[in-house]
Simulated assay, not measured.
Amino acid sequence: MIVTSPADFLAALSEQIEARGAWGKPTMSAALVVSPIGFRISPEASDNLYMKTGEIDVERAFAQHHGLVRALGDCGLPVLVVPGRDGLDDAVFVNNAFATIPDRLIVGSMRHPVRRAEAARDDVRDLFTWTFGHALTDLSQKPGISELTGPLVIDRRRGLGLCGLSQRADELGCAAMHTAFGLRLTFRFALQPSEYHTNVVLAVLAGRACLLHPGSFADPEVPAALARAYPGRTLELDDAEKQAFAANCIAVSEHDLLLSATAYRALRPASREALERWDFRLRPVEVDEFEKAGGSLRCLIAEIF
């Protein structure tokens, strides 16, 4: 079921979600990341206003990527590292091209040509289908734009999708993702024109808390409804926290919250206290070389379930 109004969302939440118990494991079992081989600031991604000017320090990017892999391992997660490729500028932001549910690989439909080439990688597809025995759902062969867990934030505990429309996800793409992930309920809404991905302004943490930046939604009733969906566990970010990628974080376990060091430094004391009160361990990782390209820590991780 896909709904588009805050009132319908709140009504459907109790009917489609709350009465039916848990949908799935709330956090991933393993992580897929792509190394920074070929990484550069993409000239195609002009709709990403978070990008900065300047050059990538390649050695620093590799060191930071290694630090991310180590942080995931420190949280008890196996990490699958796939090499990047020259010519695939943004392949490090793997969560837009590849996603999983148990026993299924989902491939996104990308807006920009360079990212379409990334989603077409046979090595990743073959790894999951031939080696791991996953079925394949290839959204790149369907109408619409659907950049997976960039525009679609998923509460995996409840089977709830939160999809922000932008140039990186349209109505057809939202419907395709809803079906591919087998979600119980998807709430579709518009982002402000300056926003390109929902996961830069909204995060659901292990299905039990929510971070959001209210001003990034076109309709102010949308963040209000989301706060009602996570009563007493919604943290509203200010402009500085949002701009520092505080919402681009990920709960990699019930209690381990990975976020960029940039985001961690920008968090207000009250924001840190709220997250810690909700029993999250904040684990900052330095990824500012990748933030130059307009994405942050969450964008670097595709979840394996």
Rank of each mutant, 00 (worst) to 15 (best):
167 Q>F: 11
168 R>V: 02
189 F>V: 03
265 R>I: 08
60 R>M: 15
247 A>R: 08
124 V>E: 05
30 A>Y: 02
67 G>C: 08
80 L>E: 06
96 N>R: 09
5 S>T: 15
95 N>V: 08
73 G>A: 15
178 H>Y: 01
281 R>P: 02
144 G>M: 02
10 L>C: 12
220 P>V: 11
263 A>V: 06
261 A>M: 05
89 D>N: 05
251 A>M: 09
241 E>D: 07
32 L>Q: 00
52 K>V: 10
251 A>D: 03
181 F>T: 07
215 G>W: 13
246 A>H: 02
171 E>V: 08
199 N>I: 05
203 A>P: 04
179 T>R: 12
181 F>D: 07
134 H>I: 03
275 L>Q: 00
30 A>K: 15
253 S>G: 10
275 L>N: 00
136 L>C: 11
127 L>Y: 14
154 I>C: 10
204 V>G: 06
115 R>M: 11
93 F>I: 08
110 M>V: 02
10 L>Y: 05
51 M>V: 15
79 V>W: 01
151 P>K: 01
102 P>S: 07
85 R>L: 15
68 L>Q: 04
257 L>N: 03
193 P>I: 01
260 S>H: 07
10 L>S: 05
208 R>T: 10
274 A>V: 11
31 A>H: 03
99 A>T: 04
21 G>A: 13
81 V>L: 02
281 R>W: 11
286 E>C: 10
154 I>T: 07
232 G>Y: 10
112 H>Y: 15
237 L>S: 01
50 Y>A: 15
193 P>R: 03
141 Q>G: 09
277 R>C: 14
262 T>N: 12
268 R>N: 06
222 V>H: 04
166 S>G: 05
20 R>V: 11
229 A>V: 05
216 S>G: 14
167 Q>K: 12
100 T>L: 05
235 L>A: 04
274 A>R: 12
44 E>A: 14
14 S>G: 13
7 A>T: 14
305 F>T: 10
222 V>L: 08
142 K>C: 14
166 S>T: 04
196 Y>C: 07
76 G>Q: 12
67 G>R: 07
134 H>K: 05
240 A>P: 03
255 H>E: 14
153 V>Y: 00
271 S>P: 03
259 L>V: 00
